[in-house]
Simulated assay, not measured.
Amino acid sequence: MLDLAVTTRAETFERMADPLAARDIAVGHVDTSERAVSLTDDPFDDYDVGFVYPSRIMEGGVADALLDVPWVNDREAILRSRNKADVLARLGRAGVPVPETVMVSNPAGESELVAAFEQVGPPVVVKPNSTTRGVGVTTARDLDSFLGVADYLDLVHDYRATGDRSFLVQEYLPDARDYRAMVVDGEYVGAVERRLPTAARERGRWKHNVHRGAEAEGVDLSGELRELAERTAEVLDVPYLGVDLLATEDRAVVNETNARPTIDSATKYEDGFWDDLARLIRATCDRSRTA
């Protein structure tokens, strides 16, 4: 039996425990945040491998040092995926289609902001460079509104302890279908389409994040979209990756990626999903032992 350390107690932990136990992988929880952790008396049990590096990088460093295990997605994979601008730059350079996007490194002068807005063209999506779950993402339909959003970001970023001060100005694709494709060890293993309920759309809601009220339904993606998701994981070199795709009638783009994706109900994935995930976990452990 292989012992797997998982640093979340959310849906993913609950959904993976039984399927992986049936494949001789015992799932255990490692609590790394919102607690006091002794640095001299190891508070953690022994594990063979970690699922994905903890979300809080500073606390993750402590857990990494004390656990001393290989991670399915290591620190570099988490940092790379979390940096939205880095992801889009790497993908665009590799020929993977992405939305028209400009990164603004705050503080930036008004002329730079105007140029960014005009390059993308209204309406634009404004999003922090390193948040998740749609936090802080908004739209601006005219230049004054956009400059007002930038003013608010300046106020927030005036706090010296703020880390990432950059934000993205991105084209808005209002009619695009929103998919989360899952890739395990380079292979597409399933996808969901995220849709807002009709009532939410009628109230003007537009974000398709599940944590914002959208519903995730299993879908059978086209071969083109499957290849796009696999190509994304290859370019970023992330073994376990959620790839967010926006698809309109005439194009498809990679919008974001998530190296700590939630596992939805297994009925939404291809047959063999849990076998593929178990193989990746074992391969991660084996590579560490032979290194």
Rank of each mutant, 00 (worst) to 15 (best):
T131A: 08
T131Q: 14
T131S: 10
T132C: 13
T132Q: 14
T132A: 15
T132R: 08
R133S: 15
R133G: 13
G134K: 03
G134F: 04
V135I: 10
V135E: 04
V135H: 12
V135N: 07
V135P: 04
V135C: 08
V135L: 01
V135R: 12
G136I: 03
G136R: 02
G136M: 02
V137Q: 07
V137I: 15
V137P: 00
V137S: 12
V137Y: 07
T138I: 01
T138K: 10
T138G: 11
T139A: 04
T139C: 07
T139W: 08
T139V: 13
T139D: 05
A140D: 05
A140K: 05
R141Y: 02
R141P: 01
R141W: 14
D142E: 10
D142V: 03
L143Q: 02
L143A: 06
L143W: 02
D144H: 06
D144C: 07
D144E: 14
S145T: 14
S145D: 08
S145P: 02
S145H: 05
F146I: 00
F146W: 13
F146P: 08
L147N: 11
L147R: 04
L147F: 04
G148T: 12
G148E: 05
G148C: 09
V149K: 12
V149Q: 09
V149F: 04
V149M: 04
V149P: 10
V149T: 06
V149H: 15
A150H: 05
A150W: 02
A150P: 01
A150R: 01
A150I: 00
D151H: 04
D151G: 14
Y152D: 14
Y152A: 11
Y152Q: 07
Y152C: 12
D154E: 10
D154G: 01
D154A: 03
D154V: 01
D154F: 03
D154I: 02
D154C: 01
D154H: 06
L155Q: 04
L155A: 07
L155E: 13
L155S: 09
V156D: 11
V156L: 15
V156C: 08
V156S: 11
V156G: 00
V156W: 08
V156H: 10
H157P: 04
D158H: 13
D158S: 15
D158Q: 12
D158A: 07
Y159S: 01
Y159A: 00
Y159L: 14
Y159I: 12
R160D: 15
R160Q: 11
R160T: 09
A161I: 09
T162Y: 11
T162P: 03
T162W: 07
T162S: 11
T162D: 08
T162V: 15
G163S: 14
G163M: 12
G163R: 13
G163V: 06
G163A: 15
D164K: 03
D164T: 11
D164C: 05
D164H: 04
D164F: 00
D164R: 09
R165E: 05
R165A: 05
R165W: 11
S166W: 00
S166V: 00
F167V: 09
F167Q: 00
L168Q: 14
L168T: 13
V169Y: 05
V169T: 05
V169Q: 07
Q170N: 02
Q170S: 05
Q170G: 05
Q170V: 03
Q170F: 10
Q170K: 08
E171R: 10
E171W: 11
Y172D: 15
Y172K: 09
Y172I: 12
Y172L: 12
Y172T: 11
L173H: 08
